[in-house]
Design a binder for these strands. Sequence first.
DNA 1: GCCCAGGTTATTTTATACAATTTCAAGCCT
DNA 2: AGGCTTGAAATTGTATAAAATAACCTGGGC
Lengths: 229, 229
Amino acid sequence: MKNRTMAGSIGSEIRRRILDGRYPAGSQLRQDGLAAEFGASRIPVREALFQLEAEGLVRIHPHRGAMVAPLSPADAAEALELRGALEPRLLALSAPLLTEADFERADRLLDDYAAALHEGATARWGTLNTELHLLLYSRANRPRALGLVGSLLAECDRYTRLQLSTDAAELERADREHREMVRLCRNGHVSAACALLVDHIGHVATALMAFLGESSGETRMPAPPQMIV
Amino acid sequence: MKNRTMAGSIGSEIRRRILDGRYPAGSQLRQDGLAAEFGASRIPVREALFQLEAEGLVRIHPHRGAMVAPLSPADAAEALELRGALEPRLLALSAPLLTEADFERADRLLDDYAAALHEGATARWGTLNTELHLLLYSRANRPRALGLVGSLLAECDRYTRLQLSTDAAELERADREHREMVRLCRNGHVSAACALLVDHIGHVATALMAFLGESSGETRMPAPPQMIV
DNA sequence: GCCCAGGTTATTTTATACAATTTCAAGCCT
DNA sequence: AGGCTTGAAATTGTATAAAATAACCTGGGC
């Protein structure tokens, strides 16, 4: 618990529980109950909820309380669209600047990921995935975009967590693609890594849309017409 | 004041004052003073500040208070990069679905803009610009991206407000480009409108970077390499 | 003269208490 | 019987006050 303020630590814990699924989508978050659960007053709970609302994990209706943001295929599709629009750009900026220490950390994350995959520890998968992606973009020197992508990754985790218990093949594909992306970045093949990243996000999107039974929805925000993909 | 909760209305007012420049960048926002100024307690002020921090207009350091987010050329560049990455995509989605009522509203906004330009009402320019852009993207059916672009437009307004008092030519160019964009959308020339939008954002970016004296900074987030611009 | 320790003050943060709003349900009227 | 009004309960929003934390200033020691 490295947070200096109670609202911050409560917010982190609520975020974890939302991502875990312990607070299911659409469920009411009663301030009184949360305050009792954390042994605190309602005010830090309120501030935590406000912060989480900004991240998109909670929706607050005035005088009607807070609920866990519902999961909808359209929302997942939009989050993946945004990821597809932003992450390749960040990778293009960051990849040439990644250091050897960064790659070693990436290797550790990949190993942890494989271990989690082996033992079926679904809880760790999401955070490891998020950490790896953010690490690859960390040298882009774009703090705002990085924070935004972090929120989007967290939101995507909520959906993939539903899927991954059934769909182990997708997890292995993600692992292979992650390893290949890291390898390409390490060897300086930036454009190939970006192309793979686009494919990677596309694969996640199509698998997720198929799982959610909403295959009709377009999964990628179209590039502006003057860009030839 | 259509806001149902005091925190919301206080947040709107603080946001307006930050965009106005009445609360200068980097200045401390003391909860006690704000509470006294609005005739309220500190708690709604705190909640408003949290919301504004999520929008990027305020930075909160735990136990050290809140300050208006400082203006930096790097920040402006990143905001414009993100706009350049997102807005053309939204326009490509939205433009074919715009209705005649939308175009009439756009015409009114353009007229208001011209009037504000004529009488030098710099205060209204930013909101009109934001409203026009958001109107053009409103049919894209991408609520999350729309809200994000709204925040980015608000942040860009803070910078352009510094510039516009000196640089009337840029305002007129923006007006011409806005009118042309609306015309292209109305006539169904979506890809031309998107191309113009990319140029429009690029013009704003180069002018702003020149004004901020940071012409060295790259002003556009690079497209991923496999996209040929 | 400079540096460190202790206390002081100002500010944020949290707890408790109160007020406003919504929701649900029961009762009344049409 | 169905819809509307009214009232109570629950929940959220706000105000006041106490606790905690960080910055600041003063005084003593080296």
